[in-house]
């Protein structure tokens, strides 16, 4: 440290000016982005305002929404939020466990284990989630297994996401170098101790941000479970509420807002977790 304290504390004016210029540029950019968002949002509101605009011969009508219907049924729809969140959390837990097992299987050198893992991932990724959900409701009872709508939905979602997320965990496990395993074995750790104490903690740390993304996607894909008619989450309520009175659009609009706000909140939590993980990045 040859630099004296005063020199370090007061940077040259030129550096200061450059720094300020950059800060100003960034602030201007952010302000403009925020204003544009506001404009787009207002435009969206305008689309649903029910206005008719005539310019000469040409008229443009926007979508009519029954506001009293919305205010009357808002609470009913909101009542599905809890179920949506519950399904999403349970499903991501199931998915995480399956993904980890599938990833370990994929890295296994035992042929049947490797085969089981790749078969599962291939089957699930090769068919639509929507179809899988129906399959669970329709096929399991024939096997004599009767599950509640929520449980079957969670299983279907968990199984599906588990297949996709196995790639994340595989990448996480592969990110832990061979040297780590060797160092653990050299001090006498057994393979299971090595996995538990050395490999998994590092792999999971790697997998946290992408798992967050999957969870955010999951909250919206949980809507597909509504199709079976047995799980009264957001989407089910949204489609049910206005059907009799031809207020379909109002229900969907309300659900859309709930989903969007939920995603915005989750995304901000996610980016906070990512910043914290990046800070502790070693």
């Amino acid at each position: 440290m040859s630099l004296s304290k005063e020199e370090a504390a007061s940077p040259t004016p030129q550096a200061e000016l450059l720094y300020q210029a950059q800060q100003n540029k960034e602030l201007r950019f952010r302000t403009n982005v925020a204003l544009s968002w506001l404009f787009l949002l207002l435009f969206l509101v305008f689309i649903f305002s029910g206005q008719q605009i005539s310019i000469g011969d040409w008229t443009f009508s926007t979508i009519k929404i029954d506001r009293t219907f919305i205010s009357e049924n808002l609470l009913f729809i909101a009542g599905g939020l809890g179920e949506t969140i519950r399904i999403s959390i349970l499903s991501i837990i199931v998915a995480t466990i399956l993904a980890l097992l599938a990833a370990l299987g994929r890295l296994s050198t035992v042929p049947p284990v490797y085969a089981l893992s790749t078969f599962y991932v291939s089957l699930i990724r090769g068919t639509p989630l929507y179809l899988q959900i129906f399959f669970f409701f329709l096929a399991l009872p024939q096997l004599g297994i009767f599950l509640s709508g929520t449980v079957a939905g969670v299983l279907a979602l968990g199984l599906n996401y588990g297949a996709y997320m196995s790639e994340i965990f595989r990448a996480g496990l592969s990110s832990v170098g061979k040297g780590q395993r060797e160092a653990a074995m050299a001090i006498g750790m057994t393979p299971s101790q090595t996995m538990r104490r050395i490999v998994l903690p590092q792999a999971l740390r790697f997998a946290i941000p992408p798992t967050g993304n999957e969870f955010i996607a999951m909250t919206k894909d949980s809507a597909l479970v509504a199709a079976t008619g047995f799980v009264h989450e957001l989407m089910w309520r949204a489609t049910k509420v206005g059907r009799a009175t031809f207020h379909n659009l109002e229900g969907l609009l309300m659900a859309a807002i709930f989903y969007w706000v939920m995603t915005l909140i989750l995304t901000s939590i996610q980016s906070r977790i990512e910043t914290r993980l990046a800070k502790g990045d070693r």
């Binding site: 040297g179 780590q180 050299a186 006498g188 750790m189 050395i198």
Partner: peptide, 28 residues
């Protein structure tokens, strides 16, 4: 036997002390 590697292979998710304690606690 104790082994020292070219690439150190310290456990990055553990502090220095935890790295050194890991063997005695977990293995022994």
């Amino acid at each position: 036997t104790g082994m020292v590697f070219q690439e150190f292979n310290l456990f990055p998710h553990m502090s220095v002390l935890e790295n050194v304690m890991e063997g005695p606690v977990i293995v022994k």
